[in-house]
């Protein structure tokens, strides 16, 4: 299991990749940067997985329900060995395996296609039920956006996870209070989030989604909790570490210009994990 400092270095690397990728090829930088700490912990510390054998039956699975955050996922996958780093630069280009939103049939290692919001938790439930049927101790992690949980299907699925006591499933809610048309509170309020999941019968944990200690503790507590699914409500900041992106809805889906990208990389700072991407 990677240390807190190691996860921070990896997360910095993922954030740098996200800036480089979206600046070169468009996409959604803000939410992805905000979730980088959580995804770093998952791919480099938490998931029991084997990038050289992505279809291993007993792997832990990560379901990215909010598919527009895929730059964070592609970076974590490339950096953990699912595919060559050089492939990252094909993101959003024609004939690429790295589609604008995840395409499972193109890229081994993706657990599902996503992009259309609200579907991931149901799929994760199916995987968690299957693990139980097969007597596998593998776990399922699912990440959703806070705006995303406005979709009714999320709450249908939340009932299912709880009804079947899926304690092998953790849902992480990326609570940055941002969606496309503004702040989630103003667009369609979803609060109180933790109380809703508690009322649905979930084990609910609230954390600062940028505090790696808290992220690790939350996953530890999930692993030790029996009898109910765990919801981790992670308070995050969109574009965390990039001053002009933080708290700004516009950075949900806007690509940084080359000047903006340079400033972002300066502010995010260097990483001791891996090298910057080189675009041909």
């Amino acid at each position: 299991m990677a240390s807190i400092d190691e996860i921070k270095e990896i997360s910095t690397r993922i954030k740098r990749d996200i800036i480089q990728l979206t600046s070169a090829n468009t996409g959604h930088p803000g939410g992805a940067i905000g979730a980088a700490d959580i995804i770093a912990e998952l791919y480099f510390s938490r998931l029991r997985h084997d990038p050289s054998n992505p279809n291993w039956e007993d792997r832990d699975r990560f379901v990215l329900s909010n598919g527009h955050l895929c730059t964070a996922l592609y970076s974590a996958m490339a950096r953990s060995g699912y595919f060559e780093l050089s492939e990252l630069q094909t993101f959003r280009k024609i004939d690429s395996r790295l589609q604008g939103h995840p395409s499972k049939h193109d890229l081994p290692g993706l657990e599902t296609s996503s992009g259309p919001l609200g579907q991931g938790l149901s799929i994760a439930n199916g995987m968690a039920l299957s693990n139980r049927l097969r007597n596998s101790d593998a776990k399922v992690y699912c990440l959703v956006g806070d705006g995303e949980i406005q979709e009714g299907q999320i709450w249908e699925a939340a009932m299912t996870s709880s009804h079947y006591n899926l304690d092998n499933l953790a849902l992480i809610i990326n609570w940055n209070d941002i969606q496309i048309d503004g702040h989630v509170k103003d667009v369609m309020n979803i609060e109180p989030i933790a109380e809703k999941f508690s009322a649905f019968g979930w084990n609910t944990i609230e954390i600062d989604g940028h505090n790696v200690r808290e992220i690790k503790d939350a996953f530890d507590s999930f692993e030790n909790h029996r009898g109910a699914p765990t919801a981790i409500v992670a308070k995050t900041v969109i574009g965390k570490g990039v001053s002009y992106m933080e708290h700004e809805p516009i950075w949900h889906g806007k690509a940084p210009s080359s000047d903006e990208a340079k400033q972002a990389l300066d502010e995010i700072g260097p990483s001791r994990f891996g090298e910057d991407l080189i675009f041909q």
Partner: peptide, 15 residues
């Protein structure tokens, strides 16, 4: 509805 068809572009097949 907008974003119908292939010319939706970079967002890809899902959209």
């Amino acid at each position: 509805v907008s974003h119908a068809g292939l010319t939706t572009g970079e967002d890809g097949a899902t959209h």
